[in-house]
Simulated assay, not measured.
Amino acid sequence: MKTLFESLFRSNAWLRIYSIIAITRLINRIGARLVIDGSAPRTIRWSDHLVVITGGSRGMGGRVCELLKEKGARVVVIDKAAKSLHGKEDLFLEADVTKEEELIQARKQVHSELGYPTMLISAAGIARHSVVMDPPHRFPSSFSNAVIDVNLKGSFNFVKVFGQDLLSDYDEEQDQELFPIRNNFGGHILMIGSGAAFAPLPANATYNASKAGIVSLHHTLNYEIQSWHKSDRVRNSVFCPLMIHTDMTKDRMKEQKNQFIFPTLTVDQAAAKIVKVLEQDRSQVFFAPAGAYALSLLMPNLPAWLIRLVANGGGSGSTFSEYLHKQRLPIGEH
């Protein structure tokens, strides 16, 4: 048996790559538990949890809301829309994540009607394709500003305002947490990143930067939760999908040619992965599909010319060129 495995391992390149990825992920899980979380995963009983989701009125966030309700959780949806398309939430609050004062008022209403949340999902996001050095009459700066404001600033505001509910007070003189924790559990913060944080998309500078910023914010929160807030009861994760079939990606991206290695996810598949991560109760950067994990390791270390070849090989460059020509504003129109 050992000889057979060794023979397969030596002759099959994909098996070697898969084994390396699997071992790396296992090491990461152990390291995250020991160094970041500081405590064993807890059993998640959804009936005990109150989840707040931004951008939960439709799309992936909406589907996450539906799945959580099926499992027995209470769910609050915060969205700029006037109402959710699914209507499954326990409480819907109309608010703009780019405006901190609106989130503060939303938090007060959540406390008043349902109590303290235990899980936060920052799913509000937009994509506005643009070319950095195109003149303003072609692509107004408002396109780029909106992406940064919603994707990055919106996540920052949401975590800043609602994250307090996951923590206990802290005694600086005694250098320890004061109990009880406000919600009697701690919690889990989950933000939506993107594979674009590691493998940038053409003509999407602000989207790429906003998602890279989300990954950086995730790592910063890990430090703060452990070192500043001294908490081992708050998990912190970020989801980095490669491509999902949504209204946001429609006509903008071509599917990867190799659907075995880099399959395009459905909204249902993406939402199910998010719920699974919450149930695992451990901090992590998780990728979908799993092959995207290899991209996150390789892309930052590849030379620029090779990254360009990878993008061209996936067809993304031509897709964005076609899309952008359709979207360009006529001269003088703002």
Results as ranks from 00 to 15, higher is better:
V277A: 14
T266A: 04
P263Q: 05
T266N: 04
T246Y: 00
F260Q: 05
T246S: 03
S283D: 03
A272G: 10
T264F: 06
S283F: 00
V277R: 13
I274M: 07
T246R: 00
F260P: 01
L265S: 12
H245N: 14
V285Y: 02
V267F: 01
V267S: 02
Q280C: 09
S283M: 00
S283V: 00
A270I: 08
D251V: 08
V285R: 06
T249F: 04
M248L: 13
K273V: 08
V267W: 03
F286G: 00
K257S: 13
I261Q: 09
D268V: 01
K276V: 01
F287S: 01
Q256I: 14
M248F: 05
K250D: 11
P289N: 06
H245S: 13
Q259G: 12
Q284K: 15
A288E: 11
V277L: 10
Q280P: 05
A272V: 08
I274Y: 02
Q259L: 11
Q259W: 05
V285F: 00
V275P: 01
R252Y: 03
R252P: 03
Q256C: 15
D251M: 06
I274E: 01
E279N: 11
N258E: 10
V267R: 04
E255L: 12
M248P: 05
T246N: 01
L265K: 09
A270Q: 05
V275Q: 06
V275I: 07
I261R: 08
A271E: 01
A272F: 12
L265N: 10
